[in-house]
Nucleic acid binder design. Structure first.
Length: 491
RNA sequence: GGCCCGUUCGUCUAGCGGUUUAGGACACCGCCCUCUCAAGGCGGAGGUCACGGGUUCGAAUCCCGUACGGGCUACCA
């Protein structure tokens, strides 16, 4: 790469809610692109809408980004040369930008009343015409305009777009050349009558002043881009390279929303997904390394990510595949990492405290190989291993019927009890396995009958993690107590 | 209404005019393994590359239309 201008990208969420799956993917692409090109990743909060924005949402978004491991080089909390990074702290910057536009003769005041504009719009729409502003204030004599402003007449400021251009076109990294006829663009409002700047204005000012080289964002902004290019030009600033991302859809092909279930990063965190897995899955939703690889860790993303492999069409979010990716990350965790990740769930369900886990660390770590290939998320662990905790266990009715109620099972449980009571039997899964198989042979029944009866008696269910390892974790005493408690249910 | 954009197995995608009988992954089905469930191994089914026209010796790949989907068209972001 022989770029003269340094690579600088930004993620610019507006804190009108928490961090969304779609926003997270945009952040991942920006973050990965910055790293892959030794660039700078900037976080900017677009909180200019006081009604919909909140500090809590900003904090929430920041928390989610941190959790995902998408750390920024400049932005809230970290600071930077080109801040502040909250738009609400940048109003003076926007005032200056407007002044710059005024000096350059590229902005003019508009005194049209909102309802007047609205009526014209409706009329144009009714006449099936393109509802662009008719520029009736564009040619008001500057002196007259100045007098009206001084007299306190309400006004907005509009961009004086060049009318001598046939079309605006730009080269989008993802979509290629996009061309929009000039007649589609109007002298849109830069600053409202209350003095507040609009989105299409501030986004350009900020990106220009923060020296953003590549704008990577959702494709809902693709149509806004020509307008923004006009703002850059009017300001006399260079235009960044644009790369627009298609949106993420729900399983029904409609835009991802609450009806599809969890859509916030936080919800996936609570559901027990690992941040590395979410990042991996999301990165692959609209981008591919080579079309073959599905497990791509953060380090690989940080070196191999490229904008030219982003796909143009929208992608459907598939939770099943996320589950699979998450499980493969769980398998990479190792027992120590697994217990650390599991701890919050143990505490939340009251199964164990941090102190208890520290005390019986190896006992908890031994659970790892038993459950890791049986769960997709951390939140699935507790229901699966619940039976390993406490003295007693409740027996599942169906399982009792199927594996305990049969004739002779009571007698079988007695034999098992006798066998397990023997202090000479080493309480270790291989020894237990040998002993129990011996019992089956002795009674001339399939080992499965023995194992299933014992499984239901000790775990409460005919489906459980490996039996013998479970007994090992349960200990002889608890195992025998549970056998005793199960006998009344046996046939 | 106008303009912009998209369309490869159910889903995520590979594919940049011939090496393609369209490859991989998830999901699905079967077999093996097996104390249940998983995990794993092996195998299978699944795509007339939205449709219709061109261009070309040759098209999923290039061009034009049509359909469907999405976006923008605000004193929202």
């Amino acid at each position: 790469m022989s770029n003269q201008t340094p690579i600088r990208v930004r993620f610019a969420p507006s804190p009108t809610g928490n961090l969304h799956i779609g926003g997270a993917r945009t952040a991942i692409y920006n973050w990965a692109f910055a790293h892959a090109n030794e660039g700078t990743f900037v976080l900017r909060i677009e909180d200019t809408d006081p009604l919909r924005s909140s500090a809590e949402n900003t904090a929430q978004i920041i928390r989610s980004l941190r959790w995902l491991g998408l750390n920024w080089d400049e932005g809230p909390e970290t600071g930077g040369e080109l801040g502040p990074y909250l738009q609400t702290e940048r109003f003076d910057t926007y005032d200056k930008a407007l002044a710059r536009l005024q000096e350059r003769g590229n902005a003019y005041p508009c005194f049209c009343a909102p309802e007047e504009l609205h009526n014209k719009r409706e009329a144009a729409l009714a006449a099936k015409q393109n509802p662009v502003y008719d520029r009736c204030c564009r040619d008001i004599d500057p002196d007259e305009a100045q007098q009206r402003i001084v007299a306190g007449e309400p006004h907005t400021w509009r961009l004086k777009i060049p009318l001598d251009r046939g079309a605006i076109s730009f080269d989008d990294t993802v979509y290629g050349t996009v061309t929009v006829p000039l007649e589609q663009l109007d002298d849109f409002i830069l600053v409202r009558s209350d003095g507040k700047p609009t989105y299409n204005f501030v986004v350009c000012v900020d990106d220009a002043l923060m020296q953003i080289s590549h704008v990577i964002r959702g494709d809902d902004h693709l149509s806004n881009t020509p307008k923004q290019i006009l703002v850059y030009e009017a300001l006399g600033y260079p235009t960044p390279q644009f790369a627009h991302l298609s949106m993420i859809l729900g399983s029904d092909g409609k835009r991802l929303s609450k009806r599809h279930g969890a859509t916030s990063v936080e919800a996936y965190q609570e559901a027990g997904y690992l941040p590395e897995a979410l990042v991996n899955y999301l990165a692959l939703l609209g981008w591919s390394l080579d079309g073959e690889t599905t497990i791509i860790d953060a380090d690989t993303l940080k070196t191999q990510f490229s904008l030219d492999r982003i796909s143009k069409s929208p992608a459907v979010f598939d939770e099943k595949k996320l589950d699979w990716v998450n499980q493969s990350y769980l398998k990479e965790l190792g027992s120590a990492g697994f217990v650390d990740a599991w701890l919050p769930y143990l505490e939340a369900d009251g199964l164990a405290t941090a102190a208890k886990v520290a005390e019986k660390r190896s006992w908890f770590e031994d659970i790892y190989p038993l459950v890791v290939e049986r769960v997709h998320t951390l939140s699935e662990i507790n229901p699966l291993v619940n039976y390993l905790f406490g003295e007693t266990v409740s027996l599942d009715e169906k399982s009792v019927e199927k594996c305990l109620a049969g004739e002779g099972t009571g007698e079988l449980l007695e034999s098992i009890t006798a066998l397990l009571q023997d202090e000479n039997l080493k309480w270790e899964h291989e020894a237990l396995d040998t002993a129990l198989r011996g019992l089956a042979e002795q009674r001339d029944i399939k080992p499965k009958i023995v194992f299933q009866a014992l499984r239901v008696a000790t775990s409460g269910n005919m489906v459980s993690p490996p039996l013998l390892e479970s007994l090992e974790l349960l200990g002889r005493e608890v195992t025998l107590a549970r056998l005793e408690a199960a006998k009344p249910f046996a046939g």
